[in-house]
């Protein structure tokens, strides 16, 4: 990921004592992974950008509450996950008062595909996310979250257990179930065959 844990802990300690440059280093290190993590879940670039900024702003304001600097990454992902949950809660609430549901970015890309110079790439993108979404909807919410964190966000089992506040054995069970389901799914096999 391009950083070592010791430097991260050092930057966290410095940022806690008010060093803004150290916090900026932390932000530069984790910004992309947090943005992607949020995008994988909400699949809207603009919303993902907004939420990413909110995550870092909240992290900056509450850095003093972080108990162990070694857990900064898990803590940051925890904030991001809570923000994503908030986003979906608000979206559900909004949808109650709206006649037409909001379209996702993936669908927008599909409709504008023929006018875009990178149409083929967009088509691939849209198809890929369609397959991923269909695979993930076959999992339970816990399995989906654990699977996404392990293989899309590249978190370790320990980091996932910290983010979700669950024991490592529980995380392994969820991950195992999710992997078995995904591996047996025909759309996953098709995707792998086409890609490999």
């Amino acid at each position: 990921m391009g950083y070592d844990q010791h430097s991260v802990s050092q930057w966290v300690l410095e940022a806690c004592s008010g060093n803004e440059a150290s916090f900026n280093r932390l932000m530069d290190t984790f910004y992309k992974s947090i943005f992607r993590m949020i995008f994988y879940r909400i699949q809207s670039q603009m919303d993902a950008e907004d939420i990413t900024q909110e995550v870092f702003l909240q992290a900056f304001n509450h850095l003093g509450t972080l108990q162990s600097p070694d857990r900064f990454k898990s803590w940051l992902f925890q904030i991001a996950l809570n923000k994503v949950r908030d986003f979906f809660r608000k979206k559900r609430l909004r949808s109650l008062f709206q006649a037409l549901p909001e379209k996702m970015d993936v669908e927008d890309e599909r409709s504008e595909m023929h006018h875009h110079p990178e149409a083929l790439e967009n088509l691939e993108k849209a198809d890929f996310w369609k397959v991923v979404n269909s695979l993930l909807t076959k999992l339970s919410s816990k399995e989906r979250e654990v699977f996404t964190m392990r293989f899309l966000d590249h978190l370790s089992i320990r980091e996932i257990s910290n983010v979700m506040n669950k024991r490592e054995s529980t995380i392994k069970t969820f991950l195992y179930r999710a992997m078995v389901k995904i591996k047996k799914d025909p759309s996953f096999q098709t995707l792998m065959r086409e890609t490999l």
Binding site: R36, F128, V132, F151, L152, H154, K183, F188, M192, L196
Partner: peptide
């Protein structure tokens, strides 16, 4: 490799 590929494609 397959599961890693899924993550790489997502990225």
């Amino acid at each position: 490799e397959e599961f890693a590929l899924l993550g790489n494609l997502a990225e």
